[in-house]
Design a protein around this nucleic acid. Structure first.
Length: 564
RNA sequence: UGGGGUGUCGUCAAGCGGUAAGACACGGGCCUUUGGAGCCCGCAUUCGGAGGUUCGAAUCCUCCCACCCCAGCCA
């Protein structure tokens, strides 16, 4: 859970609540809700809202409900409900017995609608969708009243009952709130609040053929649950007058207050449900939980921790500015978390064979290596060493560039947790000219410390014993898009997918202790980055590792600068 | 040309009339058996612009500019 030494985030929403509390409003009660529609998986933008709503409830000793906003059966499903429940729990939040469904309120909502008709504040309209649009006017011109606007209460009541009874086809009638066709806010121009939709609902089946619209259902669901603060995103700001209008017409006593904040955008990815669905359905990714996806499921599979995601949500803040948060901040948050908790291990992604000429054939020894150099409490493990090892291809260069601190002709380098070795010779593939094997000698005096003669060895590289190593598939993930704001491009956003977002290395060599890595648990492969065994595809004997995030790479920067 | 919002460092974001927090990113240094981590230093004389009020303005007023949202029987 959140350490107590971290001050709770402060933002304009909490200020509003503080002010209300000081003024003695709402009996000091704070009740929020997280209201997803189960028509897709939760993503990092939802996580922001989850952290906000559950965070506020916890901070003020209140409650936060989880509510499925399932008022449009098209596209909604149990699969999504289950994923949402799973994801919110995984993020670290709990709603006790307060899992609710707007669909459970259908009868109550229907009665509210009847009440509105009886009050003369709603009428059944038989205009077609096109006609309603025409009558709505434009942003700069007022709308025109429907010829059915002054239908009698009795007739509307009768028609509404028959809508429910299934006497009419889709679109034949709608129920509209009677507000103001000349309102400068188009939302208030007699909004449709109920429509006929003969689509089976994943929970209510065919029980209903009419469904309430969002504007009607949401504010009243909030009221039914006695929500105090209904926190939503900025695009609903235009709908707030309608929210308040409905609640004022139908609810007595304490009324919920809608507060809007800016939705999250993250660079190099996409956070719109519509586009995420497209990526999944058109096969650009392997599914909602593809580790490249900004979904909670994808990030979980990638190896992100709930702590890192919560930390990110705290760091981005809550305001009303349109934003595009640098994805580097997200990466910094996982690194920060995993740096502290992930055990270290060695793995060689692109192996280069190294033979230690002066090491006895057939012999082996074990090095006691720290699981975490800064945290002895994490213990030690044994890492086997022998005559033939693998090192990273990029840790050897026959023509080393300036500032290169690794292995090359005439050079010495420290094998992490083991001996210092010196270059002796190399073998090349005769046809390709590629270096296929390097021969070295080791210095036995360097087993537990610096060379006996006091000479300085700067470079340290990681390695793995060839005979003891386990072969593994490693999946190198990178950002999904090549452009910072894929949602903002003029052409199809899929044109900007990063072709290098996934690189598969089929035969990386990992140290034996990694063979049993429990799927999902984060490790630091020293000098490389944070990795975890894949939740779905990693099996004993055939491990598969995902790269969560690379380590900060200052050599990479120097190397790039050198080329410029 | 309607209504609703927002404009503070490259990116988020504090600031609420008393003289620009912090984070990420970036640059430099120290240290190091991870070119990791850690530590140190630097990084907005200026807050979309122009006027005005005030001893004093990012904060108040006026005008202007830019961007976002709204014309689903989606949410």
């Amino acid at each position: 859970m959140t350490p107590s030494d971290i001050p709770p985030p402060t933002d304009f929403i909490r200020e509003i609540i503080d002010d209300e509390l000081r003024a003695g409003k709402r009996g000091g009660r704070v009740a929020t809700r997280f209201p997803p529609e189960p028509n897709g998986y939760l993503h990092i933008g939802h996580a922001k809202s989850v952290c906000l709503n559950f965070g506020i409830a916890a901070q003020y000793g209140g409650t936060c409900n989880l509510r499925m906003d399932d008022t449009d059966p098209a596209g909604e499903s149990l699969e999504y409900v289950e994923s949402i429940i799973n994801d919110v729990h995984w993020l670290g939040f709990d709603w006790a017995d307060r899992l609710f469904y707007a669909s459970d309120y259908f009868e109550q909502l229907y009665q509210f609608a009847v009440q509105l008709i009886k009050a003369g504040k709603a009428y059944v309209d038989s205009l077609s969708a096109d006609e309603i649009r025409e009558h709505r006017g434009t942003l700069t011109e007022p709308g025109r009243e429907s010829p059915n606007r002054n239908r009698s209460i009795e007739e509307s009541l009768d028609l509404f009952g028959r809508m429910r009874a299934g006497e009419f086809e889709d679109g034949a009638y709608v129920l509209r709130a009677k507000i103001d066709m000349a309102s400068p806010n188009v939302v208030m121009r007699d909004p449709v609040i109920y429509r006929i939709k003969r689509v089976p609902h994943y929970r209510t089946g065919t029980q209903w053929v009419i469904y309430p619209m969002y504007d009607f259902a949401h504010c009243l669901s909030d009221s039914i649950e006695r929500i105090t603060h209904s926190i939503c995103t900025l695009e609903f700001e235009n709908n707030r007058p309608l929210y308040d209008w409905l609640v004022n017409e139908l609810i007595t006593g304490d009324r919920p207050r809608q507060i809007e904040f800016a939705r999250l955008n993250v660079s190099y990815t996409i956070l719109s449900k519509r586009r995420l669905i497209q990526l999944v359905e058109q096969g650009y990714v392997a599914g909602w939980d593809d580790p490249r996806m900004p979904t909670v499921a994808g990030m979980r599979r990638r190896g992100y921790t709930p702590e890192a995601i919560r930390d990110f949500c705290a760091k981005i803040g809550v305001a009303k500015n349109d934003n595009l948060v640098d994805i580097a901040l997200l990466e910094a948050c996982v690194r920060d978390d995993l740096n502290e908790r992930a055990p270290r291990a060695m793995a060689v992604l692109r192996p280069l064979r190294v033979v230690i000429d002066n090491y006895p054939e057939g012999e082996a020894e074990e090095f006691e290596s720290a699981n975490h150099p800064q945290n002895p409490a994490m213990g030690m493990r044994k890492v086997p060493f022998s005559k033939v090892i693998y090192i990273e291809q990029e840790d050897f260069d026959e023509n080393p560039p300036k500032k290169y601190k690794r292995l090359g002709p005439g050079r010495e380098v420290r094998l992490r947790n083991a001996y210092v070795i010196r270059y002796e010779s190399m073998k090349k593939d005769e046809t390709t000219g590629e270096v296929v094997e390097v021969h070295c000698t080791y210095d036995p005096s360097t087993r537990n410390g610096p060379p006996a003669d006091g000479r300085k060895v700067e470079g340290v590289i990681h390695w793995v014993s060839a005979n003891h190593a386990v072969s593994a598939e490693v999946r190198l993930y990178d950002r999904l898009f090549q452009v910072p704001d894929p949602a903002g491009v003029a052409d199809d956003f899929t044109n900007h997918l990063n072709p290098g977002s996934l690189e598969i290395l089929p035969s990386a060599q990992i140290e034996p202790s990694l063979a049993l890595a429990p799927p999902g648990a984060g490790y630091q492969f020293e000098r490389l980055g944070y990795f975890c065994a894949d939740l779905k595809d990693s099996v004993a004997g055939k491990p598969v590792f995902n790269r969560i995030a690379p380590l900060r790479d200052s050599w990479g920067k120097i190397a790039v600068q050198g080329k410029r």
